[in-house]
Design a protein around this nucleic acid. Structure first.
Lengths: 202, 202
DNA sequence: GAGCAAAGCGGAACAGCCTTCCGCTAATAT
DNA sequence: ATATTAGCGGAAGGCTGTTCCGCTTTGCTC
């Protein structure tokens, strides 16, 4: 959808190799961040993508630009997953399945936490984007469930997303992955059980 | 208190300049971390302390060792403050004053958050130390207040410390310092008000 | 298909950082 | 006063982020 040249006239369309490279860089960055955290050496990312470092820096002048681009891309994927699940499953089930997606996203985002908390103002808009992109989708599912009678109606999407994110984030007590993940999953299940029933307090 | 030579016999006492330097390095590191975050260049820290970088690395072979030492030192100071306040003020007041100390500690620790969340296993034991050092002191104040009738008895020190830390930590929505700090302080006050009364739910 | 303008590429080069290493200084013990 | 050695400082080596520019490849035109 959309013409290659928005308003003007004939500024040549983007070079095919440039498009390929942009994609390859994002893939490589994602993999490198997953392996070595957001501090992964630029040379590594460039090598994985099969390009020179100059190519990365032209598309992402600041290192934070690349990090943000990867973050946004996975965020959008998680949002799309919400739409997909919403279309294929009944609301209560969709929420449950989507909670898994979000947990994976948060887990992947592990390395990003240090960037987010780094105080660099470049990352300031990210938390708002996070909620801005996800909340409408999740709210749609919640509304459908409320109309359906399968989800209690007094929970806002923002609050649910916040809660799920905090639960999925590793609690700072036991760092053995198995234990943490288990606890996170257990607590998420409890929360979702609570979401299915009518408000408990009489 | 304590003899300079624990068991053996006569292994010479520690050189006076070494003692001075160790202290100077800790002070300098604290200042440098406050100014530039935990990634402050080693050379800067060494220059501030008036020593060579080699001196730092002998005492703290890993960078994380130095970071942890500074963290521990401020943690101990915060713990000592709890004891001091506990001795000088009635429990309810002591808790309120100490909450300020903790807030300052958490604010200072701002730069440490990225280290704590970095995934480096060197920092894994810190959260447990955090609670281990503070909880007994705070519990003592809570107990005194409970006996006193000025603090409700159904709150555990660990939970209170956790809550206060989370409240003092900047919420990820509005990054203007004035706003965040205000909200943190307001919510802390509310929490402490709630701590003073008897359990609300009948 | 051939020629041309320029978008885009790659990696050498520069600067800055962490960490190691070792000759030397100066504090302690006698 | 002298001997011993703990402890010091900073140069050197290796790794990283970022810039810059000559060269390649692409897309367009005829």
């Amino acid at each position: 959808m959309g013409s290659p040249e928005p308003p003007g006239g004939l500024p040549r369309r983007k070079r095919a190799d440039a498009v390929r490279n942009t994609e390859a860089v994002l893939q490589a960055a994602k993999a490198a961040f997953a392996d070595s955290g957001v501090d992964a050496p630029m040379r590594d990312i460039a090598a994985r993508a099969g390009v020179g470092v100059g190519t990365i820096y032209r598309n992402y002048p600041q290192r934070s630009d690349l990090i943000i681009a990867v973050f946004r891309r996975e965020l959008d994927a998680t949002a799309a997953e919400a739409d997909r699940l919403s279309a294929e499953y009944p609301p209560a089930e969709a929420i449950r399945l989507w909670a898994d997606s979000l947990a994976r996203f948060v887990a992947t985002k592990q390395g990003f936490a240090s960037a987010l908390h780094s105080g660099d103002p470049a990352y300031a808009p990210l938390p708002a984007q996070f909620l801005g992109v996800l909340a409408p989708r999740v709210q749609a599912i919640l509304d459908a469930g409320a109309a359906n009678g399968t989800i209690r109606p007094d929970i806002r999407a923002e609050d649910l997303i916040h809660a799920l994110s905090r639960l999925a984030d590793a609690p700072p007590v036991d760092t053995r992955p198995a234990v943490s993940n288990d606890r996170a999953k257990r607590m998420t299940d409890v929360l979702l059980d609570g979401l299915a029933v009518t408000p408990a307090t009489t």
